[in-house]
Nucleic acid binder design. Sequence first.
DNA 1: GGACATCGTGGCAGTTACTGCCACGATCTT
DNA 2: AAGATCGTGGCAGTAACTGCCACGATGTCC
Lengths: 199, 199
Amino acid sequence: MGIREQKMARTRRLISEKAFELFTCNGYQQTTIEQIAVAAEVGPRTLYRYFPTKETLVVEFVRTSLFDALEELHAQPVAPLPVALNTVIGRVLDVMATDPARVLAVYDISGPNGSVRAQLGDVLWSWRDALAAEVAQRLDDPSDRVTAQLTAALAINVIEVVVRSWVNSGGTADMRTLAAETTALLRDGKIPVPTPDQA
Amino acid sequence: MGIREQKMARTRRLISEKAFELFTCNGYQQTTIEQIAVAAEVGPRTLYRYFPTKETLVVEFVRTSLFDALEELHAQPVAPLPVALNTVIGRVLDVMATDPARVLAVYDISGPNGSVRAQLGDVLWSWRDALAAEVAQRLDDPSDRVTAQLTAALAINVIEVVVRSWVNSGGTADMRTLAAETTALLRDGKIPVPTPDQA
DNA sequence: GGACATCGTGGCAGTTACTGCCACGATCTT
DNA sequence: AAGATCGTGGCAGTAACTGCCACGATGTCC
């Protein structure tokens, strides 16, 4: 990696950190792009090249966590689908557990703010699509998009519920344990499924 | 309903219709709030009182479809949970089938545009929370939030997959049939579930 | 039916996120 | 060492959104 890329990586991290500082300290709405630029000692124009929107500053950590874990699944040789799904979920949670404070911060910020919460949802949406594509390849019928979509959706539901429970616990619970409990519910058919009314 | 409320309802619908006309005709990004205001013969300031953000103009149809259907569930007397879920899903799809062109338009617009797609996701998110609250009341253990969340998530997944398939079919398929097929997959355990790797 | 209270309307000025354009200077290549 | 490449950032501009305020239409009370 050349000097150029190193500097850019450093600048990127610096911007991200300063942004989180200001967000958690003064609030998301109250913090302006220019303030972040000043704090990171770059021009606003430069900041926009690293993070195209203000929401990106908050959401990017989650995005990379998800897609990094997915890439590992892609590289991995063939494995039974249910096990592979369990592995991906574990990877995602592990990466997030790397920086628990940031996870909590993301939730604090995105909770009251509509556009950030929405962007967070969009990250999950696009990740679900990517996961569904990965799932389809390992299905008996790779053209069965409905099954692939539902499978991916299920996996992301588990992640969402686990992270949510974890956040509600204030970050004290163990994500792996929560995940195990949650998937067990699904496997044991403890979750009600829509059923037509026919006697 | 007084004259005032009637006028407001009319203005609201007029703004919404003109907005969709311009969006589908000239594109979302290319259409400005002021253009919509001129087309609807109101001041921009007034338009903002009806629709606080530009995205709202696109998303509001989906939001009302979802929450109207949920309200009916709330009013309904006790029914077996699986049947109730099936009913809600049917209601939502019925309401959407009321105006198929608009559903297709919403997808066309939100597809390429990040912020609109995100807002759409946020609507689903908030609806899932509301549905989860409704589900919890009908659970043996109303404090079991994990089960409630997963159940609601499952229902919304079905809706998403069905609408998506329907859109992909160009609006020719029958939503009810698609829904029946999808829920059948879930009931029959045809969807792979994350499973730990233990011999 | 008329006077007063209520409330939607919309114009104006201002903030802020974001973009295209362009010149400068630092890094990389040969 | 000289030239090509590329990140940086200033400047001007657009458009989404907001607070404030006055006007006029609707609702209410006598």
